[in-house]
Nucleic acid binder design. Structure first.
Lengths: 224, 224
DNA sequence: CTAGTATTCTAGCGGATACTAGAATGAGGT
DNA sequence: ACCTCATTCTAGTATCCGCTAGAATACTAG
């Protein structure tokens, strides 16, 4: 077969992608980067990995063309190479959730309270935002909010929520979101808010899932 | 961090998927299986791999939950676990094409004649099929046609095309398709048909891409 | 220039895995 | 029961890769 070499080359290229996402740590790093640009140090801390190790994984991701970086002063900031990488990540996790009962079991075991959060989907939230009858709360760290948040959201990182909950309007329902369906911050936030008497629910997705639907995402530190 | 174990478990699961598609041979096997059920022997032959080796790769794919199998007499027939696996494959290859100039270069170098084939996309083909002004030709092996083909297509495997080309209607335009955008069979078919005076074009996609759009796919050995 | 910090590079170790060859299993046919 | 054939399992080897620690690089501040 004269086509052998062609096929080998072609599938070798595609396998670069597979190789890049064949490791738990790299998938976690990509998920973090889907929230926005981050330094090596931030990535290492947030993924509980040694910096050297993080750097090595980032090197692999860079060689696979999934991430890009730029120097900014002393720091090196990494980011996803483009939005299609984020979409691919979503597709991978979607297939994982579908094919692996272990994923569902692990998530249910750790976020067992999830069903009680009355999770709301992106489509319904969009309608409610348009109707203006919900307060949308981004509980991620402030820099991730700045890097990109759902239009109309206000930012209160979950570790400041105890102190700042009182600033939230009492009457309206609150919807909290965080990094994505496997992130605990929104779950914690909803639980905290409910204990204080707010009517709070959890968004099933994070910014990447919201953006993938073509819904509006805003950059900047202040929601209007 | 108490969540560490949760995250590790979760991303370890997702990494199973990545690991499964981190090898050229496994990607090639999945692509072949996207055409329909095949025996180990067929897969080994069509991927130019030793049977033992093929079996080992299929084992990995099985453990990753991407393929399923059943015994049928002496043979073991493998198939994709479900349609979402095929969609994921398409997503992976789409990102690969987008991110890797090597993919485009390799494809262009090997299928250099591709642009001359006046490739037609699925959406346009669908309109033309509805209008009834094209003959749709499936040039894959007969068993892949039987396992699933585009509604309205007729089957002439590319290696029988020389003998059977005369049965094609002269007046209508012909659109040929094969396994997908990286398969050479349709390119060869179009070239052969044009030398004989037919007006032939090539479909940019195969059955998996057609199906993923929700367009009609038919099983069975005869197109009506 | 020097000092300090963030990040990358290099080398070594241990575990995983792709490939190969030989043995074993499982189903059908005689 | 026996034989045949498709497939899988087991064992062995070479290779790759993830982790770790020490050295080197790149930038900033003074």
């Amino acid at each position: 077969m004269e086509h052998r070499e062609f096929k080998d080359r072609l599938y070798t290229q595609f396998a670069r992608l597979g190789h890049a996402v064949s490791t738990p740590k790299r998938l976690e790093l990509l998920d973090l980067l889907a929230q926005g640009e981050k330094t090596v140090e931030q990535l290492a801390e947030q993924s509980c990995t040694a910096i050297k190790n993080t750097s090595a994984h980032l090197r692999v991701l860079r060689q696979a063309g999934l991430v890009d970086f730029r120097r900014e002063g002393v720091y090196v900031r990494y980011r996803l190479a483009d939005e299609y990488v984020a979409e691919f990540l979503l597709a991978l996790q979607s297939l994982g959730r579908q094919r692996y009962s272990e994923v569902r079991e692990v998530v249910d075991a750790h976020l067992e309270r999830r069903d009680e959060m009355e999770p709301i989907g992106p489509a319904e939230l969009r309608r409610r935002l348009a109707a203006g009858d919900v307060t949308l709360l981004d509980v991620r760290p402030a820099d991730e909010f700045t890097a990109g948040h759902i239009a109309g959201a206000i930012s209160i990182p979950v570790d400041q929520l105890t102190a700042r909950a009182a600033t939230l309007p009492r009457g309206k329902k609150i919807v909290a979101y965080c990094r994505g369906p496997y992130c605990v911050m929104a779950v914690d936030a909803v639980q905290l808010l409910r204990r204080r008497g707010y009517r709070a629910r959890r968004l099933t997705d994070g910014v990447p899932g919201w953006r993938a639907r073509g819904y509006p995402v805003v950059r900047g530190s202040r929601a209007s």
